[in-house]
Simulated assay, not measured.
Amino acid sequence: MADRVIVVYPPDAAGGRRVRVDGTILGRARDLRALTEYLRRAGLDGIGDLDVVRSTLIEWRGGAPENWNPA
Rank of each mutant, 00 (worst) to 15 (best):
M1H: 09
M1D: 05
M1L: 03
A2V: 11
A2K: 12
D3V: 14
D3S: 15
D3R: 14
R4E: 03
V5W: 11
V5H: 14
V5A: 15
V7M: 15
V7W: 14
V7H: 15
V8T: 09
V8N: 02
Y9L: 14
Y9V: 08
P10A: 07
P10K: 04
P10H: 02
P11R: 01
P11F: 06
P11K: 01
P11I: 03
D12K: 04
A13S: 14
A13N: 13
A14F: 08
A14T: 13
A14I: 00
R17C: 08
R17A: 07
R18D: 10
R18I: 03
R18E: 15
R18S: 14
R20A: 15
R20C: 15
V21D: 00
V21R: 00
V21L: 01
D22A: 10
D22I: 12
G23M: 04
G23A: 13
T24A: 13
T24E: 14
T24K: 13
I25C: 01
I25G: 06
I25D: 13
I25F: 10
I25Q: 10
I25W: 07
L26P: 03
L26E: 00
G27I: 06
G27W: 06
G27S: 07
G27R: 05
R28D: 06
A29C: 04
A29P: 02
R30I: 02
D31A: 07
D31M: 05
L32D: 01
L32E: 02
L32N: 08
L32I: 11
L32M: 07
R33N: 09
R33E: 14
R33F: 10
A34S: 11
L35M: 08
L35A: 02
T36A: 12
E37T: 11
Y38W: 01
Y38E: 03
Y38I: 07
L39K: 02
R40G: 04
R40L: 09
R41T: 08
R41Q: 08
A42Q: 00
A42Y: 07
L44E: 11
L44F: 01
G46I: 00
I47N: 00
G48R: 08
G48V: 04
D49I: 09
D49V: 12
D49Q: 13
L50G: 01
L50S: 08
D51M: 01
V52M: 01
V52E: 02
V53N: 02
R54T: 12
R54M: 13
S55C: 10
S55G: 09
T56W: 10
L57F: 03
L57D: 12
L57A: 12
I58G: 11
E59R: 15
E59Q: 15
W60D: 05
R61P: 00
G62H: 03
G62D: 01
G62C: 06
G63Q: 00
G63I: 08
P65I: 05
P65S: 00
P65G: 00
P65Q: 01
E66Q: 13
E66Y: 11
E66L: 10
E66I: 08
N67G: 06
N67L: 12
N67E: 13
W68Q: 04
W68F: 00
N69A: 13
P70Y: 09
P70K: 08
A71E: 14
